[in-house]
């Protein structure tokens, strides 16, 4: 689970989490309106270099994190290639491949990868506690939601351990196979999931009690570890957005840029 690990110090990791989140959101929305294969490819390459250099991440880690995105990209590509009408390139029985399908499929697939590399850069370089603190102080998320989210995050770290404990406790009482191994059924999986949910709710009630007893919701609050938006963060955010704008602008000038109109 990527969130629980400590984040390496790097230029990207030192940037303000709220600024990074805002940039990621902006870039994802902007890419939604780009539907040619070339522009997102450039964004992807720039993003890959930026994440590896700026985040001081090993290439292997970044590539491994991209596998789920790659699987989805392949799925989107093949669906579009096989189902989109247009000039037929290749036909075999009910299967046919069209030029339009290839272009739109490649555009959607590369777009998935481009958004993916930016998300990976965010997740791998952002400490979750810093994100919560930053959301509270910089994005002015209220004290209640941010502390509740923090409580939820604590639970997230504990849940895998609890899951193992529940499974072990059930295995002690479970009927054994002839060779002595535990007979696990899908029903036992469901029971364990239900137990986990009950445990999570009970723990949440206890956390709420202790938060209430510590005066959660009283104003004004002071914080121990202030997070600030520095001038470097502003420069970082502005330059990424500007870079994306330049890429899309050049693509438009060269005539390769296509919007959602490419679909119809």
């Amino acid at each position: 689970m990527s969130g629980a690990e400590t984040v390496r110090d790097s230029p990207l990791a030192r940037r303000n989490p709220t600024v990074k989140l805002a940039v990621l959101f902006l870039a994802s929305v902007a890419l939604l309106f780009v539907l040619d294969p070339v522009t997102p490819s450039v964004v992807y390459l720039l993003g890959l270099i930026g994440v590896i250099v700026g985040g001081r991440l090993p290439l292997r880690t970044v590539l491994a994190a991209q596998l789920p995105f790659l699987a989805f990209a392949v799925g989107v590509f093949s669906i579009n290639v096989l189902s989109r009408p247009g000039t037929v390139v290749w036909q075999e029985g009910p299967l046919r491949v069209t030029v339009d399908g290839l272009i739109v499929g490649a555009a959607l697939a590369v777009r998935t990868l481009a958004i993916g590399i930016l998300s990976i850069g965010f997740v791998l370089t952002t400490d979750s506690l810093a994100l919560m603190t930053s959301l509270h102080q910089n994005a002015h998320l209220g004290a209640r939601p941010s502390y509740a989210l923090m409580a939820g995050y604590r639970l997230l770290q504990q849940l895998p351990g609890e899951w193992t404990a529940i499974r072990d406790a059930q295995a002690v009482r479970a009927p054994l196979r002839r060779n002595g191994s535990v007979h696990r059924t899908p029903a036992s999986f469901g029971r364990a999931a239900f137990t986990l949910l009950v445990l999570a709710i009970r723990r949440g009630e206890r956390m709420a009690q202790s938060l209430e007893s510590r005066g959660l919701g009283l104003q004004p609050r002071t914080v121990w570890n202030p997070v600030r938006v520095g001038s470097l963060d502003v420069v970082f955010g502005a330059s990424i957005v500007a870079g994306l704008g330049v890429v899309i602008g050049i693509a438009g000038l060269l005539g390769v840029l296509r919007g959602p109109g490419a679909l119809f």
């Binding site: 209640r144 939601p145 509740a148 989210l149 409580a151 939820g152 639970l155 949910l197 999570a200 709710i201 723990r203 949440g204 009630e205 956390m207 709420a208 009690q209 938060l211 209430e212 959660l216 919701g217």
Partner: peptide, 11 residues
Amino acid sequence: RVVDIVVASVI
């Protein structure tokens, strides 16, 4: 209430 928001987060 506080318990509402914490348990909602937990769920």
